[in-house]
Design a protein around this nucleic acid. Sequence first.
DNA 1: TAAAAAGTATAGCTATGGCTACATTATAAT
DNA 2: ATTATAATGTAGCCATAGCTATACTTTTTA
Lengths: 129, 129
Amino acid sequence: MSFKKVRDAHKTENTEDYLEIIADLLNSKGEARIVDIANHLGIAQATANKTIRRLQYQGYIKKEPYRSIFLTLKGQELASISKKKHIIVLTFLKKLGLDSKTAEADAEGIEHHVSDKTLKKMEKFNKKN
Amino acid sequence: MSFKKVRDAHKTENTEDYLEIIADLLNSKGEARIVDIANHLGIAQATANKTIRRLQYQGYIKKEPYRSIFLTLKGQELASISKKKHIIVLTFLKKLGLDSKTAEADAEGIEHHVSDKTLKKMEKFNKKN
DNA sequence: TAAAAAGTATAGCTATGGCTACATTATAAT
DNA sequence: ATTATAATGTAGCCATAGCTATACTTTTTA
């Protein structure tokens, strides 16, 4: 029953991670390059390249060959939602008493599987603590 | 950095779901059949069949053609760990104030991405509330 | 017991995300 | 300006998890 939802989450999970990273890179460096994404994720550049191609034809990003990456409106929106979720979950885990490193690591995995209802409860908890 | 861990979790995630379901079926019905697993997961029987074949050559289960499924020791151990995690996360989400349905759905996705440290914190929270 | 139904298995397809090896283009350095 | 290096791109491989269609057993039922 719930498993379908989990599978659906998995489909967008990688996409969300990429968009979050791209948004962060655009903010910090002013540009997002494949090599940086690959380094952030700890994967081969060729793998990042392939996924970037997918993100492009799925309409999340725009890029010219050998040039850096930009987010489309669709991409920006998803990046923004992902970022918000990430912060809520991360803060929540820290307030629960976890060290930054563990909180960061777990948030990465958890953020894609948290419903809006649960996010609300986490926010509530964050405010109270 | 943390992304590698998430990817590793994904590799075992499906395996853990299958083993948990098989263990549950063995407990409730006395036997685990492919058709039941497929129904539980909401996937085609052929897909379940294929994964069951993988679980077999990976040493988690034993089965004869057209017969029901049994867990090996290795399979039992992983099923047991998964079950424990599931209960902790599920209880935690309920104590956080979520309804059973949401808690169940989210636990399904979250349980595979929770470190031991976080589980400990959740248990602590569960006892206090 | 023979036929129908249910369950299981297999083949072959798609998409994803890993990888390495190699080709190409851009950028930096000499 | 040419060359070396870095970045990007492409090809081709593997494994996973979905699917449908079809074949084969097993079980049920008439």
